[in-house]
Write a protein that binds this DNA or RNA. Structure first.
Lengths: 204, 204
DNA sequence: AATGTACATGTACATAAGTACAGGAACGGG
DNA sequence: CCCGTTCCTGTACTTATGTACATGTACATT
């Protein structure tokens, strides 16, 4: 379970395997699933080329293992967010704070995008790509109806893509208003007055 | 401008170039930007390998040309949708119908996803990936305020990813309700009674 | 018809990547 | 200390791909 660097030559299959998968996730997060090569993983993990082929019967299996790892991480983040949805209706502040943590985390954002990209072009990865989305919908469905839960999940997927592309998200206020609108809930009273525009007319 | 198959050996640079770009777009749409190879393009376009290297100084330039073509197509679809946004506030039916045409078109959906994927991992493609999103936001901003326009654009990006992954979109009714909620507008009166759930409580 | 130019084709070569494997090193048990 | 097993390493081979280029072909010009 330690994260110390591997000693070359030393026998430690479990840790070596983890180091290889971890290096693979970093490459995928940085450059996308298509950029994964044995040699890049070996260089990044500090192991010999042969080690990257020993634990996985093909590069596709290695990629799959790395994507599974990323999906796992996302699932854990999601589980950590879940409790905060309980107060979504009364005060969404905490739930939004947790969502922002995710959108502010480049690794999480790019991991999610890598999963979606994989699911698009690799049928066997579709289920994995949809896992976190389905999980989120299920969690939200405990508190709001399913159609709205799906709408919020879809919006957050879009927000993920935008965050990945633009390097930033729409901001706490905008996201709060959007999620509340999708949840069919009124905005909670705020201490600082909001510049809400109820009419929907353009401002300028 | 004709689309008839190319005659091998015949000299027709302009059409050949278009055929190559078109073949490249089909490969990108089908298997993603990373799957593009000169040989795949040559086979798909029915031209010699050498022809695919003649018009573009590198495979990256060919990919870029193909992605530009796809962005062009999306821009045109978007321009076709624009007029229908004028009645968004009074009756969104037509606008939603146009959006559904896009979400129901696998080529358009996968083209959009390919652009986003490229923008994620290739900085020089970011601007292109954001073009249609920005265009849509500008169009919507003519009728609703900018924050809501952005929210709708982000939701539609998410809907695009979902459509690509699941093979279907949430459905006309759900999309209509979602877009209206994001626009800050009430649902228009319907002939068939809607099963609207104003409270936001889960149904079951 | 002759001919030069621009285009098209296929081959050839260099590089990169996946994979196999032979040899060596570490570790556990005698 | 010896030895067998398991793991680690690096090299070598095969295939795929990008790219260069020599050759061939169509077509415009004369």
């Amino acid at each position: 379970m330690t994260d110390a660097p591997l000693t070359p030559g030393k026998r430690d299959p479990a840790r070596r395997r983890r180091a290889i998968i971890h290096a693979a996730t970093e490459i995928i997060v940085a450059d996308g699933p298509a950029a994964l090569t044995h040699r890049a993983v070996a260089a990044h993990a500090g192991v010999a080329l042969g080690s990257t082929t020993q634990y996985f019967s093909s590069i596709d299996e290695l990629r799959e293992a790395a994507l599974n790892q990323l999906a796992e991480e996302i699932d854990e983040s999601l589980a950590a967010i879940e409790p905060f949805f309980k107060t979504l209706k009364t005060d969404p502040t905490d739930a939004i704070t947790e969502l922002l943590k995710y959108l502010d985390d480049p690794r999480a954002v790019h991991a999610d995008i890598a999963l979606m990209s994989s699911g698009i072009n690799t049928p066997s990865m579709q289920a994995l790509a949809l896992r976190w989305s389905n999980h989120l919908i299920d969690m939200l469905s405990e508190h709001i109806d399913r159609e709205r839960a799906e709408a919020i999940a879809i919006y957050l997927d879009g927000a993920t893509m935008h965050a990945g592309l633009r390097g930033h998200h729409p901001g706490r206020e905008a996201i709060t208003r959007t999620v509340m609108a999708l949840a069919g809930l009124p905005m909670p009273p705020t201490t600082t007055p909001t510049t809400e525009n109820v009419s929907g007319e353009p401002k300028e």
